[in-house]
Design a protein around this nucleic acid. Structure first.
Lengths: 211, 211
DNA sequence: TAATATAATGTCACTGAGTGACAAAAGTCA
DNA sequence: TGACTTTTGTCACTCAGTGACATTATATTA
């Protein structure tokens, strides 16, 4: 069992950060350099053929230091997905009380889709690697689904009607499935494909479900 | 990238096996002994605290030999889930042509639930470990979802109406989500809980979706 | 049954991920 | 500048997993 919900350095930065000392700036540069080099090498040589040492060499740091920025090799790839999911949880917590579970879920997942939409190039690359590397595909699934319990909690807490916990869990899982296949579909399409649109096509058919 | 769809020795056994030589019998015993020891140790000391060497010692074999039975430490845990999913694919391929996608999916997933139902004790144990070990939770998710493409293919091929591939993919994913949360719910309940029943409660609400 | 072929196991040496401990270097601030 | 804190590098280590090759056990056949 590892980091579970520990955040990586990037996520700790407060949205509007003041001047920021030299130390902070160097850390961000290092983090960015690692990510850049890692993605480049994964593309060039393949994920499994790229060692931490290769990445460390590429950015001239010790491999020990790599692990001070990323808890594992995998985390370089999953970071953006995880933080997007966390955004979704925050979004739901801050949203106005929903009219119905379906309305709330359409809203959060629509928001998530719009967030993923902004990251297309990075996601294309990441999912291409996932397609060739089961352990990464597995990680991405987990990273998506990991947010479900928090989403359930958030939704239940904002629903005045005492909704059945298990039903909410089911609904969240179903919408998550919709998001997941929408992302897959969207990434297979051309660069001008519209994720929000793909997701809505699927979600519309869900909202006719009886509560 | 590892074995992908390679089968472990157990799965290669033909259902009705004739006498079976000494070699075969020894292999099955070894495999069973490994699984037994591994599960016992995982329970006692925790998954991550148990090394391959510990398992090998417990059954008096070299750790090299462990890897001739299981491609990885994880595989000891995921094996039964994977083979159950494969059963589901086979079931769908051999079933009579379905009246509708929903009918077909209710049938396969009902079958899968009934298969999982038979394995409760092992699944309780495995999911307890998954709850403490993200990499295993991740693996279980993957093992479930991994069957989706094959399920889509099987379903599409048996549907006379030229169904939209993406819609079928979505439906399969949604039913898979139902199975997944049903299993989670069922494992949290008492020993006399009924998985098939839990799943049907969820699936019934799906079948009212427009195709 | 003995000789031979084949399959399973053990041994050894190796790569690579990940970690703990501690010393060296760099950034911070008075 | 000097004292303090954070970051980095070094080193030694554990553990998963693999390839190569010798050894042992099972299977086959004359």
């Amino acid at each position: 069992m590892k980091e579970e919900f520990e955040m990586n350095p990037k996520e700790n930065i407060h949205p509007i950060e003041a001047p920021a000392g030299l130390r902070e700036r160097k850390k961000r540069l290092a983090q960015a350099a690692i990510e850049e080099a890692a993605l480049r090498l994964f593309q060039q040589k393949g994920y499994e053929q790229t060692s931490i040492q290769d990445i460390a060499d590429a950015v001239t740091m010790s491999s020990r230091t790599f692990f001070r920025y990323y808890a594992s090799k995998e985390e370089v790839l999953s970071g953006p997905i995880r933080s997007t999911q966390l955004d979704g949880i925050r979004y739901l917590l801050e949203a106005e009380p929903p009219a119905s579970p379906h309305a709330a879920l359409q809203s959060v997942f629509g928001y998530l889709a719009s967030q993923y939409e902004k990251q297309r190039p990075g996601l294309v690359l990441r999912y291409r690697i996932a397609g060739q590397t089961p352990s990464i595909a597995s990680l991405f699934l987990y990273t998506l689904m990991e947010a479900e319990p928090a989403l359930c909690d958030a939704l239940c807490s904002r629903l005045e009607t005492g909704a059945d916990r298990d039903e909410v869990r089911f609904l969240v899982a179903v919408y998550m499935a919709a998001l997941r296949v929408s992302i897959e579909e969207w990434l297979e399409q051309g660069d001008d494909a519209d994720l929000v649109n793909v997701l809505h096509r699927h979600m519309d058919r869900l909202s006719s479900m009886p509560d």
